[in-house]
Simulated scan of single mutants.
Amino acid sequence: MTDAAEGHGAFTVLIVEDDNAVKSLIATALKVQGYRLLEAGTGGAALLEATTKNPDVIILDLGLPDADGIDLIRQVRTWSHTPIIVVSARTEDADKVAALDAGADDYLIKPFSVEELLARLRVATRRLAADSGTDRDGPVYENGDLRIDYAARTVTLAGEEVHLTPIEYKLLALLARNTGKVLTHNAILKEVWGNALASDLPSLRVFMATLRKKIERDPAHPAYLQTHVGIGYRMLRK
């Protein structure tokens, strides 16, 4: 583990990548930002590091020599909620959905810019900081001007009550409880509708559109509800 510089030193990142050039690029960028680092080049080594060193965030390549990264995500999710950012050359939406459904928090396609990777990492660490010392499922959620009182099932924006339908409220509460995490269409449908039927996807899109109109000051440029085309949605941390 490297000594941390000032800044992000409170966070330890496990880089799981078998391409030494890519691993070195990521490691160098993170060191400059002050993150503490752990490294692994195989699935077996990654599991050992994750279980014994308890990293704050995992950056994971899917194409490992001894394991499929999606299987690794599933294994980690049996005992940990550590944010997982996938960095992969797999570009198909089906691969992204599979990784996110398995429990990944974000998905970045190779080749990627260092700036974009750092931005995704900041999202993950902000989520960790926001959750630290708090009950994520506590009675009140606050994010910028948005406030959700789970006990009263009420939503306010800048102090003004927002009237939501039951499904709109369920959608908003689900995304809020997973702030910073990309939730796939399938994951949302299972939680809100109780199934993941493709026939329900148009309904999800309609409800998300109406929800966005109610809580976004400019629905065309959303500040809270981010769309990942073909994948799902994410609540942004303000």
Results as ranks from 00 to 15, higher is better:
Arg127Lys: 15
Asp66Ala: 07
Glu49Val: 05
Gly230Met: 10
Val155Glu: 06
Leu38Asn: 12
Ile85Val: 07
Leu172Ile: 08
His81Val: 03
Arg126Glu: 13
Gly41Met: 12
Gly63His: 13
Arg122Gly: 06
Gly133Ile: 12
Ala198Trp: 06
Asp71Lys: 13
Pro55Trp: 05
Ala50Arg: 08
Arg74Ile: 09
Val155Trp: 03
Asp101Gln: 09
Asp3Ser: 06
His163Gln: 09
Glu6Ile: 04
Val162Met: 08
Ile73Gly: 01
Lys190Gly: 06
Leu211Ala: 01
Gly41Leu: 05
Gln75Arg: 04
Ala124Asn: 02
Thr51His: 07
Met235Phe: 04
Asp149His: 02
Pro202Asp: 09
Glu168Ala: 05
Ser113Trp: 09
Leu211Thr: 04
Asp61His: 09
Val229Thr: 13
Ala4Ile: 01
Leu204Met: 12
Gly9Ser: 08
Arg212Ile: 01
Asp149Thr: 00
Ile109Asn: 03
Ile148Lys: 10
Ala187Tyr: 07
Thr134Leu: 14
Met235Glu: 04
Glu168Lys: 01
Trp79Glu: 09
Glu115Met: 03
Ile188Glu: 13
Tyr35Thr: 04
Arg90His: 09
Ala40Tyr: 14
Thr184Lys: 08
Val182Phe: 07
Val13Gln: 00
Thr154Phe: 03
Lys214Glu: 06
His163Ala: 07
Arg234Ala: 08
Glu160Asp: 10
Gly230Phe: 09
Ala104Pro: 03
Ala94Asn: 15
Gly9Met: 04
Thr82Leu: 05
Arg122Leu: 12
Ile59Gln: 00
Ile148Met: 06
Thr154Pro: 11
Ala40Arg: 14
Ser203His: 10
Thr165Ser: 09
Glu49Asp: 10
Val162Cys: 11
Arg127Trp: 08
Asp68Trp: 06
Ala99Cys: 07
Asn54His: 13
Leu172Glu: 02
Ile231Asn: 10
Tyr233Gly: 09
Gly133Gln: 07
Ala158Lys: 10
Ile70Lys: 07
Met208Asn: 08
Ala158Cys: 10
Gly230Cys: 12
Ala94Thr: 15
Asp56Pro: 04
Val182Gln: 00
Tyr150Leu: 05
Arg153Glu: 15
Val97Leu: 01
Thr91Ala: 09
Pro139Phe: 01
Tyr35Glu: 02
Asp101Phe: 12
Asp18His: 13
Ala98Phe: 12
Lys31Phe: 06
Gly159Lys: 13
Tyr169Glu: 05
Ala119Glu: 13
Ala220His: 13
Leu30Trp: 05
Gly43Cys: 12
Asp95Cys: 09
Arg237Asp: 14
Gly41Ser: 14
Pro111Cys: 02
Ala209Pro: 00
Gly63Trp: 06
Gly44Lys: 11
Arg237Ser: 15
Ala152Trp: 02
